[in-house]
Design a protein around this nucleic acid. Structure first.
Lengths: 196, 196
DNA sequence: TCAAATTTCAACATGTTGTTTATTACTACT
DNA sequence: AGTAGTAATAAACAACATGTTGAAATTTGA
């Protein structure tokens, strides 16, 4: 039994791997189930033993990605939030975030591109926003001073941060996580220096 | 002759209008050319007299949108950039931008959603970035003080701004353009107030 | 060797695509 | 009024993709 589940797992993984390889070169729309089967060297019928359709396949990969990233962020939150000041904690959080993004860069690059699926950046941002919201709401001085709807503040700051990540990933990680952290801090302080 | 071109124009417009109506309720993938023809009450063959395929249809609408928005922004740039200080000009530019977005809100809402096409937000941001880049490069003190790659700064600031717009459009324009401008300024100054 | 799980293979009906051909309706020109 | 041009229709076409089925082959476990 456990050998079969292992075999199932490997077949499923093979399909996912082959699919992601194709996504680097072709649009999601233009990839057929037949194509996937051909690349993975399995029968087309076998595909349907593991996935409902190609949308389900993408859904599962996306869900996996969010789970892994989410778990990693949660782990970081508990490590850093208590030991340092809020500002310093934010910085280290950002640094660690760039690191976990780095691990998922190949997948993210595809999902954010025109080869991916519409609305991915919304789902990505929503997932990220939720983490940031929890983190910010734990800080009392932050909440006391914020005079704009949290919803819009989150939209602004998470979009900005993910914008950096998007650029970084598109540039094939041309910088280290540390450099990205410095970059992030520099931009914030540049904005702070303006009109004072 | 001009009667024929007019008739062509109206049929083409009818197809586009019907298509956009469907996009509010269904995914782009799931919409067939047959569906579009049915909704527009035209023959399926007629569709192919005006568009290569449904991708071409979407491309043309997207291109139109970018042209209209781009023209509007250019118009604003020339109006505001010369008459006021840089900071004040930026504010008024933002205000006018929210206005022009408002006019295209229904289209934008769909294109940014999961009903649209993958990568739209990238193309949208690229177009917007280009406008902002030209504007910023005209300001010498800005360039002198910026110590991060322009590419990344643009990614950060345009993503942030478009994040606001995205939220606004998703909220069905729950605020006026003026309120959005205030919101934008408030967020910037909130960030400026932090860690000083 | 036998049994069970997994995968394969071929076939099927169904639906979409883009093209074509013939036909109809309307407009423009002389 | 008559002819040519243009747009739209209707019907048919091959090519391809979809999801499903049933029987056979393969792999694995006992």
């Amino acid at each position: 039994m456990s050998v079969y589940t292992e075999k199932n797992r490997r077949t499923k993984e093979l399909i996912q791997k082959s699919f992601m390889e194709m996504l680097e070169k072709k649009t999601f729309d233009s990839i057929t189930v037949g194509d996937i089967a051909k690349t993975a060297k399995i029968n087309r019928g076998t595909f349907y033993l593991h996935f409902i359709d190609k949308f389900d396949l993408l859904d599962q990969i996306e869900l996996q990605l969010f789970e892994e990233l989410g778990d990693h962020i949660d782990q970081l939150q508990s490590n850093y939030s208590s030991t340092h000041s809020f500002e310093k904690g934010q910085e280290q959080l950002a640094a660690a975030l760039f690191n976990s993004i780095k691990m998922q860069a190949p997948l993210l690059k595809i999902f954010l591109s025109e080869h991916g699926r519409a609305g991915f950046h919304l789902r990505f941002r929503a997932a990220f926003s939720e983490k940031v919201r929890v983190n910010l709401e734990g800080n009392e001085s932050f909440n006391a001073n914020l005079n704009v709807p949290m919803e819009y503040f989150l939209a602004f700051i998470t979009s900005a941060f993910l914008g950096l990540i998007e650029q970084w990933v598109q540039n094939n990680l041309d910088k280290t996580s540390e450099e990205m952290t410095v970059l992030y801090i520099d931009i914030i302080s540049f904005i702070q220096r303006k009109n004072n």
